[in-house]
Design a protein around this nucleic acid. Sequence first.
DNA 1: CGTTGGATTGGCT
DNA 2: GCCAATCCAACGC
Length: 223
Amino acid sequence: MADMQLRLYRAMSQPTLAHDKRIERTFFARDTRTVAQDLLGCVLVRLLPDGTRLSGRIVETEAYRPGDAAMHAYRRRTVRNAPMFMAPGTAYVYFTYGMHFCFNISTEAEGVPAAVLIRALEPLEGVKRMRLHRGRGDIPDEALCQGPANLCKAMAIDRRLSGYDMLQPGSVLFLEVGGQTGGYLVKTSPRIGVGGDEVAKTIPWRYYFAAHPCVSGPPALRR
DNA sequence: CGTTGGATTGGCT
DNA sequence: GCCAATCCAACGC
């Protein structure tokens, strides 16, 4: 059932892959909430050293901004969170819970700490390789890049890519325009798993395709 | 320098 | 629903 839904959506999505249109830096140099919404439907591409191309359509994001207590750079700039201050379009990858990586893209003007967390993708290219990275053969397509840490594992994204300028020539990690939303409605919710204070826990800066099979989180937050 | 807990996940009660 | 896994950044002394 979910498999068929995913297959149908993938068939609808295919034509946009042919555009092969790279997203420019100015796209990221805007209000982080706008960028987080506009990234839905865009395609994240990862080129592996052996030439393998992995890609997936973004279906879930979260915005992190200055003055936001849930934000890693809320207090000050550190070696770890420095990429969030760098040029828009810089990757910020952090290690958490002793075993997981999460992937963000720096937004707004250089010097402003802000980023969009990419939480889930609909796998498009390199599904077999993603399953290999996940380390199990029984993971269904829609779960391969479901959740920020699973996404990083499937797409081979780790701390070596933190601070990486995604718009540099010959980039191995970049974004392409998505074009359509595939008919999915965009919804918002509070961000998942954040601490900080009540404001941070309440503000609706999570964006996702409602009822898309690849979205993560508890069932109520996928609808 | 020691302690605490996290933008998570998956397995078990 | 609860909790362990497993590292390290952040913060307090």
